[in-house]
Amino acid sequence: MAIVSPGFRGRPRPAADLPPGQYPTEDFPVLSAGPTPRVTHDRWEFTITTETGAKHHWSWREVMALPAETVTVDLHCVTRWSKFGTTWQGVSLDTLLADVDTAADYAVAHSYGGYTTNLPLEDLLDGQAWLAYRYDGDDLTPEHGGPARLLVPHLYLWKSAKWVRGLRLGLEDEPGFWETLGYHDYGDPWREQRYQGD
């Protein structure tokens, strides 16, 4: 579908840094499947719900009190752009999940505005995923998913849910918004897992 503009083509990086079928860009395209939610910090809440129904809540203030990490990662969007060297600040999902008692294998991230995406729980652990609230030194703007978004840079960017409000943990894999419309359940850019069957 030729709807998304390929945008500016940035300086070449070694081909080894670019997953198959991707091209580099230096701007930060905004893709959106709906109205941009505007959630104030005092109304914002993050909730992890386990397979037993147990809920763990964090207010904005409580998240801000958790240890923050700064990470610099490459982003790979399924619409074929990649952006190298993006710097984020946020809380590791290891921190948020540390005291959550679960036997779940899967997670569904759900967002303000209704978006969902599914991931194996193990892909959110071991320093692979963050609840990110600052980008390039500034508060994350609503257009890029603020107040906070999931950041899971080893998978295509649709897995890094914007405006994330929580995780539902489960024993079964439950496809999310794009995964129920033909996109791949896992979405590894290095294996070019764009669509179901890839």
Partner: peptide, 21 residues
């Protein structure tokens, strides 16, 4: 349309009515 697929929403309530990929 600036998304991984087309998402058509209700002009009244903004709910998703139709999606096409």
């Amino acid at each position: 349309g600036r998304a991984p697929a087309l998402v058509a929403r209700c002009p009244g309530c903004a709910a998703v009515v139709l999606r096409f990929n």
